[in-house]
Write a protein that binds this DNA or RNA. Sequence first.
DNA 1: GGCATACGTTAACGGTCATTAACAGCACTC
DNA 2: GAGTGCTGTTAATGACCGTTAACGTATGCC
Lengths: 197, 197
Amino acid sequence: MTTSPTRTDAPTRREQILKEAARLFAERGFHGVGVDEIGAAVGISGPGLYRHFPGKDAMLAELLVGISERLLDGGRLRVAESDGDPRAVLGSLIDGHIDFALDDRPLITLHDRELDRLKDEDRKRVRQLQRQYVELWVTVVRELYPRAGEPEARAAVHAVFGLLNSTPHLGGAPLDRTGMERLLRGLADGAFGALGD
Amino acid sequence: MTTSPTRTDAPTRREQILKEAARLFAERGFHGVGVDEIGAAVGISGPGLYRHFPGKDAMLAELLVGISERLLDGGRLRVAESDGDPRAVLGSLIDGHIDFALDDRPLITLHDRELDRLKDEDRKRVRQLQRQYVELWVTVVRELYPRAGEPEARAAVHAVFGLLNSTPHLGGAPLDRTGMERLLRGLADGAFGALGD
DNA sequence: GGCATACGTTAACGGTCATTAACAGCACTC
DNA sequence: GAGTGCTGTTAATGACCGTTAACGTATGCC
């Protein structure tokens, strides 16, 4: 495998670029950021980026495909690791998503904001990954709350995503990390609990 | 007063433009839409828009200021009309926000997505209106759940906004209007309920 | 009828910006 | 030490796009 979890080596130039591009895209939108700016953020100048990426679109594509894959992989892992208790599985999915939202705010922002700027092929791929991730949640939610219909469960999952992904909208950080984790977990549990009537 | 509630007269050209611009901005982002496209959407051609607005920025500004004012005014009205029971007031605020989110999806999308494209003056005004609207909610939430600290209440309000504003992310409409209203109301109540411990 | 005002049109201007061209240093091999 | 990728640079290109100019037409008012 490549290097995913808890690496200690220095980030490659490609990775620097992706990180800064994500931040800038999230701040000002894909069209609102110029390649010169992205270059400047990593200490090289505009066209130098083309030694690492075929174009600006490719950066966005890699970011969105990457985040979607990581979300889905993480979700699948948590479901597979579980003992089958739906309550525990859903809790684990929520915690995983919270970690993600708190660790990678810019990516979370991009995820539902810039999808339409992708080439057809990439957009299809991202949407497919997103769909599978949602399906993971819907399945567990319906096991835990059998009285909820499928459309209700699906809409509820989307709504809770909106809830969990709200952190970028908070200006400062009035709450510390663990406080925010606990709060979001409670809110999400409470929201899903409403499906039990 | 002008004409706000349940009008029967035909929409003016200005209003047509604003509506189509909102839709297009929400779909492809402010920078992703050209003035020619907006013009075409209302049957005139690009520069014709300049008979109605001083520029593209002005359209976005009017949209964002308008939505923020309507949200705040609606919220204030509901608080003022109430008998003071925090539970009823919060329920009324939630219902009002849901109506808004379901009626004006494009505006909801723009509201937290394109704020940075505004001139300093307009952005300040919108942010101030948003802040006051949040304050309305936080006050009620803290009355209803005194055990919650202020940062928790504030973050919870933002999170519930994310929950309620999630409807644009649902592709089709697997749930009918009243079903969606009821679901969102339940989810929001459940989420806030978590503040009671 | 004369004329102002409102509302369009098409053509041109000017700036921004992604991308490409042309060129250069640097490391590392054979 | 010539050769070859790798990674930069600056300058040019070409498209797109917001905005303005210059010009038409209908409506309604004196």
